[in-house]
Write a protein that binds this DNA or RNA. Structure first.
Length: 271
DNA sequence: AAGAGACCCTGGATGC
DNA sequence: TGCATCCAGGGTCTCT
């Protein structure tokens, strides 16, 4: 499941294949993913050149030479491959973007939670995003100020893209574990020092995950088909019943906001 | 306005 | 073997 490190890994892998390439043809195989896909075919993308590949939160941004942006969100099971068209279309491939070097940007998504659309200079989904966790504007001071009076569990607050963008379930669990904060604590109850520790843990875990090429859990693959190596570094995610790497207590699982939440009951006190 | 929950989707794992 | 059920979960929507 792609979070920020996985999307950043994909972006880095795509740059040499896409930057400067001209789009020659589109093939749309599915009527819709999370949003209708058919408008893409009529967007006049043929002949446009991809001048840059950027990222904002979990969105990949393929910048076009006419000022528009091809916005790609991998959802949970989105996979991008750069291959030729000789390889037969896979069952869940929804879109081919043919490039002027003969290669094809092939988009696969089993669960169809992904989004691919053309946007202009700004778009509602991008405008709503909070600061990048590894960029200017995010840190303990910001998190402390933003979370005052908020009763929602700190884990859900951390996963709110309007607070800070790109922190999904895996890394929210890990950051809270590293900073010894119970995921169910009200966001507004965190002391300033706890916010500092949490922000530092968020940055640390994301940086390490990017370094490792992301976490391959279930469906995520890098564009060359290889797996990321960060999964083995996870302290609590998916490890219910296993001993905490810090103290040996069994990791527990609860559900917050409908998502699996893993924590060490000894290291992360509810207070 | 904040917070909680439903919903979208498919495949894999599990249970009987 | 085969069928039913549950689970994974990012983002958006609705309801209170």
């Amino acid at each position: 499941m792609p979070e920020l490190p996985e999307v950043e890994t994909v972006r880095n892998a795509l740059i040499p294949h896409l930057a400067g390439r001209k789009i020659t043809r589109l093939e749309v195989f599915s009527p819709k993913l999370r949003e209708p896909l058919t408008p893409l075919a009529e967007a006049g993308l043929e002949g446009r050149t991809i001048i840059a590949v950027d990222r904002r939160g979990r969105y990949l941004l393929l910048r076009l030479d006419d000022g528009r942006t091809l916005l790609v969100h991998l959802g949970m099971t989105g996979v991008i491959r750069i291959e030729n068209a000789v390889i037969p279309k896979r069952k869940h491939e929804h879109l081919f973007i043919h490039l002027d070097d003969g290669m094809v940007f092939r988009f696969e998504c089993i669960r169809r939670f992904s989004v691919i659309k053309v946007v202009g200079a700004s778009s509602p989904e991008l405008d709503a995003l909070g600061p990048e966790p590894l960029g200017e504007g995010f840190g303990g001071a910001y998190f402390f100020r933003k979370s005052r009076e908020r009763k929602t569990p700190v884990k859900l607050f951390l996963m709110d893209n309007s607070v800070v963008t790109g922190v999904g379930n895996i890394y929210a669990n890990e950051a809270l574990f590293r900073s010894h904060i119970h995921p169910r604590r009200a966001a507004g109850s965190l002391k300033r020092k706890e916010c500092d520790a949490l922000a530092e843990a968020v940055c640390g875990v994301l940086r390490e995950a990017i370094e490792a090429g992301g976490s391959s859990i279930r469906d995520y693959r890098r564009p060359d088909g290889s797996e990321g190596h960060f999964a083995r570094e996870l302290g609590v995610y998916g490890r219910v019943g296993e001993p905490c790497p810090g103290c040996g207590s069994p990791i527990e699982r609860i559900v917050l906001g409908g998502r699996s939440t893993f924590f060490c009951p000894a290291c992360q006190k509810a207070k």
